[in-house]
Write a protein that binds this DNA or RNA. Sequence first.
DNA 1: GTCTATATCGAGATAGAC
DNA 2: GTCTATCTCGATATAGAC
Lengths: 187, 187
Amino acid sequence: MGSKGEALRQRIVAAADELFYRQGYENTSFSDIADAVGISRGNFYYHFKSKDEILSAVIDSRVAAIVTMLNEWDKKFKDPRQRLYYYIDMPLRDQENICLHGCPVGSLCTELAKINRTMLDDANRMFAVFRDWLILQLNFLGVRKNVKKIAMHFIARVQGIVTVTNAFEDKDFLQQETKQLKKWQCR
Amino acid sequence: MGSKGEALRQRIVAAADELFYRQGYENTSFSDIADAVGISRGNFYYHFKSKDEILSAVIDSRVAAIVTMLNEWDKKFKDPRQRLYYYIDMPLRDQENICLHGCPVGSLCTELAKINRTMLDDANRMFAVFRDWLILQLNFLGVRKNVKKIAMHFIARVQGIVTVTNAFEDKDFLQQETKQLKKWQCR
DNA sequence: GTCTATATCGAGATAGAC
DNA sequence: GTCTATCTCGATATAGAC
């Protein structure tokens, strides 16, 4: 704990995370990651024995990062409605990256569904964390029926917006649809 | 035209199309395609000189297939509302594949955004064909304002549903959300 | 722990016989 | 047109020196 090796491990995970997002998991080689960190490939294998292992570490890291982020949101906003809006606006706050690389969660799941279904079961935990947090917020708002369904509905809406924004590199669409989604009300 | 070579070319494109959908573009090798068709790798290169070239042919083929399909829908349904429903129900009619491999259009665009942005500009024509057809149907329905936005909205909604269905392998969600989306009305 | 060197494999791509 | 043989490269992964 706190050793030099642990710190390097974290740097490797951070570099892999970024590269998987920007160029995709399959398209990212160990050399890419090693170069980004500034270490040799040999050293890399001391920390991670296989590509599955680094992917697993990246997913764990992302899940932890999402949990931390949502805790901060909870501190920042006391009104669940505001929290919901902040969730919907998330792609808007990161427009440039969303436009170029899509959603880190959605695009990874889409990729893994085709190349590694075992890891997909691990990756969709990222969605699950958002879902459970959304369920909480809906409860606070007094929604009692179909809470899980509605939480999943929000996730799907945001995913759809991001997929199309990414495919057409269209920020205007992102802005429009985000605005629209905030008009949502329980029917 | 109609020669043996042309027919083989079509078979190669069909095999590549299927494989790109099931295992992703990057993850599909020339050997995979050659094996699926039952020809040698060498022969393959007589028909397509590079991987970009086969991808381009697959995209063209998919665009043509979508155009043909929409023409058939137009013949099958005279009511634009029914046509819209048929579009929304499209993933439902192909549940098994959607659950396992996602949307052929969306997942390819998501992949290409990360590995080949030039081809992405080509691939999003698949979305554009649907969009233009949706615009027509909305016109028939008497919608006059924001027609393009609404068409894109439908595409995004379906994409979101499919992405989440695929990530969680959850057919129930697909069925629920599809039903919900058909309740859509212009606000 | 971190490095260099190397083994092994499969990929995209080419040459040339038939 | 279709094949076999081969080239070249970059990938994952390992061995072993420091």
